[in-house]
């Protein structure tokens, strides 16, 4: 009987063992890859985005569009993030991989693991990997998604690992009464984090208790964001609140090299936007520049995309302006902006 190892903990730190199907490893090798993110994943997101726009589901459309645009930097950056995570548990890598996980979930229509942002695949995807062999789900860590997976597949679950050392599982309703003891243990380093089971009440006492746990626990905030994988973070980096939006997370494109004949260094697309208008259900046509590099997408006026897309590495700016039927001085102004953005550069 084949042992199916659950999708958590994620990202995986080791290779698949013989005789087992390790879903964390399979997720990584099948989906957290440049080829999938830039290929099938991007196509799935584009289709779902179009459906959401057609159905007038604007909030969802905005989420899908952000995921669609992020598939460019993620496809370019996910491999090195994986390497950085495996090599030295880099907190920035974890943020990038968590963003990739959300993009995968949105593309595939999946949910996430309990208490963590990682993917919980659907039954069809898992069965495809099993090839008709009889199987049993083998739990390997607390909150690893094994219970959810066994329920999804309607099969036996073996093992029920407890919380790891340094972590205590506490019911939300006990948070206030146990606050002093928990915070003391966290501050003394006896605990790294507390897993709060259930939803804390919105009462002031409950919020203040949770605030103190976050203040004192070396890994509390990180575990709340990333699940138990965050325990691998060094205590000094576990407290750093990196987010996907942070400037330092991705590279900034270098300005282009000026020249008489320019060529685009990125892909220009027209999308419904900007994000705030899309969320409000009043999208307009906007342009976006997308790099096949770990660089954040840049929203621009549609005319800038038209100019970037008209560059063929042969024609000079006058010929490009003529082909677009626009005034040369305006086209030159746009090209200067595109050069500064690193969206175009001298040909050759």
């Amino acid at each position: 009987m084949t042992a199916v190892l659950p999708p958590g903990p994620f990202p995986p730190r080791s290779l698949e063992e013989d005789g087992a199907v390790d879903l964390a490893v399979r997720l990584w090798t099948d989906l957290f890859q440049p080829g999938w993110l830039a290929g099938e994943g991007r196509v799935l997101l584009e289709h779902r985005l179009a459906s959401a726009v057609d159905a007038g589901e604007w909030e969802r459309a905005a989420l899908l569009q952000a995921a669609f645009l992020d598939s460019w930097p993620l496809a370019a950056g996910v491999e090195s993030a994986g390497l950085a995570w495996r090599a030295h548990a880099d907190p920035r890598a974890l943020v990038i991989i968590a963003r990739a996980a959300l993009v995968v979930q949105l593309a595939r229509g999946w949910g996430s693991l309990p208490g963590a942002p990682w993917c919980l695949p659907d039954a069809a995807w898992v069965r495809e990997r099993l090839g008709g062999e009889p199987f049993v789900v083998q739990a390997r860590a607390h909150n690893d998604g094994s219970a959810e997976l066994a329920q999804l597949l309607g099969c036996e679950l073996r093992g029920q690992p407890g919380t790891p050392d340094g972590v205590l599982d506490v019911a939300a309703q006990d948070l206030v009464s146990q606050r002093a003891q928990l915070a003391g243990s966290l501050s003394r380093g006896e605990l790294q984090a507390v897993l709060v089971r259930g939803e804390p009440t919105p009462s002031a006492a409950s919020q203040l208790a949770l605030g103190e746990l976050r203040l004192e626990g070396s890994h509390q905030r990180a575990v709340e964001r990333f699940g138990l994988s965050a325990l691998e973070l060094d205590p000094s980096s576990a407290g750093q609140d990196w987010s996907w939006e942070d400037d330092g997370l991705l590279d900034a494109p270098s300005p282009g090299r000026p020249g008489p004949v320019l060529v685009a260094c990125c892909e220009g697309r027209f999308i419904p936007g900007p994000p705030s208008a899309l969320r409000a259900g009043r999208p307009q046509r906007v342009g976006v520049l997308l790099w096949d590099a770990p660089v954040r997408p840049v929203m621009v006026a549609p005319v800038a995309v038209a100019v970037a897309n008209a560059l063929d590495g042969v024609r000079d700016s006058a010929a490009v302006a003529a082909s677009l039927g626009g005034p040369l001085d305006q086209v030159q102004l746009i090209l200067e902006e595109l050069l500064a953005l690193g969206a175009v550069s001298a040909s050759g």
């Binding site: 919105p202 203040l208 976050r214 203040l215 004192e216």
Partner: peptide
């Protein structure tokens, strides 16, 4: 220096309650 900023950002927690906490 551990950040106490959160005490001023909790919805529904007024200043006197935050100071007491």
């Amino acid at each position: 220096v551990r950040s106490l900023d959160y005490l001023y950002q909790l919805p529904g927690v007024d200043r006197p309650t935050a100071y007491d906490d």
